[in-house]
Design a protein around this nucleic acid. Structure first.
Lengths: 141, 141
DNA sequence: ATCGTAAAGTTGTATATACAACTGATATGA
DNA sequence: TCATATCAGTTGTATATACAACTTTACGAT
């Protein structure tokens, strides 16, 4: 039995595989730095958004984060359970003082993580990230 | 109460947030194309590697994929359960004829996915992916 | 040959992710 | 007003991911 398509394919070109590797390596570096604050990468991203904009809905957060609504709903729930986010004005969501204080405390660790990633990517690597994200966002309109 | 670090921080610069968005958008595009073959992105990556090299161990797959050993162990188990991979020569792992045949059938869908991603990234976007991955790999030695 | 250590593999647990299906709210047209 | 249709939010289920802890295997020194 032979497999002409498979034999003609170079799997190392697979962009899904490359992106997954990039994602795993990056996530691991960030996680290492911020885990001592009990925050995951995804939770930190969510808190960051909520720290800068008030009264966002789940739908709006989904659009900002390119995240499926059920994923967001559950990530959010964990932050609400910890009282970092309040649903007091539901459906509007807001970060609490507790949430802001916790995020504030985690920022030095976040900066260390950013520094470590930047030391790997250098300026052109960080630009490359923006290039890719800008292009991919075009598909999300 | 005020939060000097938080106020001095621009969360939109966060590389973890950017990478996560990139990962979600890309994974969704690939998933859309290959799901009809019952393969996930991660499973396809694994089968691709095993289709090109014989007798790899779990450890070797982990190193190739930058994946934690327990993650790999379970992803592998799903492929073994479906008889796409055999542990007959354990600890050496091998793709089966069934696995190769299934992968062969999925390749046209994979090509469509690649085409869609490439139409978004263009040549410079795809180069940017390689730039990033090459730099990040430096940290994994 | 054996004992001890280190490495590989497995299992328990928690979060992240998305799709499908359901619920509830809201808005719009007859 | 009411019926319906759409949209936001929630819940069920499955895979992906990683850390910690455990088991098993392999290997090296004495």
């Amino acid at each position: 039995m032979n497999y002409p398509l498979l034999e003609a394919t170079d799997p190392t070109t697979c962009l899904s595989g490359k992106m997954s590797r990039i994602s795993r390596i990056t996530a691991n570096i960030f996680r290492k730095h911020i885990k001592e604050y009990g925050l995951s990468n995804s939770q930190m991203s969510l808190l960051f958004v909520l720290s800068k904009r008030r009264d966002l809905t789940q739908k709006e957060l989904c659009d900002i984060l390119f995240m499926e609504k059920s994923t967001l709903n559950r990530n959010l729930k964990r932050l609400v359970d910890q009282k970092y986010v309040t649903k007091k004005d539901f459906p509007a969501l807001n970060i609490t003082e507790t949430g802001k204080a916790h995020l504030e405390k985690a920022i030095p660790a976040w900066r260390k993580a950013m520094k470590e990633i930047r030391s790997l990517l250098l300026a052109d690597g960080e630009e490359a990230v923006d290039t890719i994200l800008t292009k991919l966002k075009q598909s999300q309109l």
